Simulated assay, not measured.
Amino acid sequence: MPSNAQVKLLRVLQEKQVRRLGETRMFTPDFRLICATNSHLEALMADGKFREDLYFRINTVVLDIPPLRERREDIPVLAQLFLQRYAEKYEREAVRYHASVLQRLMKHVWRGNVRELEHVVEHAVIVATGREIQLRHLPETFRAGAAVDDTSPLCTLEDVERAAIVRTLTYTRGNKRAAADILGVYRPTLYAKMRKYGLMAAQEEATPA
Rank of each mutant, 00 (worst) to 15 (best):
K196R: 12
T141N: 11
R96V: 13
T189R: 01
Y171D: 12
H137K: 05
D53C: 11
Y171A: 12
E73S: 10
E140P: 00
E122T: 01
R167K: 09
L33P: 05
A147E: 10
A164V: 04
A124T: 00
R136M: 12
R111D: 10
P139R: 07
E93V: 08
Y197W: 03
L44Q: 10
Q134K: 12
A164C: 12
A94R: 12
K193R: 10
A5L: 15
A128I: 04
D30G: 09
A144E: 08
E23N: 03
V127W: 08
I58T: 04
L10H: 02
T60S: 13
A43C: 00
R72V: 02
R96L: 09
D53S: 09
V185H: 00
F31K: 11
A5M: 12
T172M: 00
P139T: 02
L41Q: 01
P76W: 15
T28W: 02
H137G: 01
D149T: 11
H123M: 05
T168Y: 05
K196M: 07
E23K: 08
V114Y: 02
M194S: 09
Q80T: 01
D150V: 13
T168I: 01
P29T: 02
T207P: 03
E73D: 14
G112A: 14
L21E: 14
R57N: 10
R57G: 05
H119V: 04
Q84V: 03
E205Q: 13
F31I: 09
G48V: 03
R19C: 15
T172Y: 01
S100R: 08
V148S: 03
Q17Y: 01
A180V: 00
K193H: 11
A99S: 07
V95I: 10
A124E: 04
D150T: 11
G130Q: 09
N38S: 12
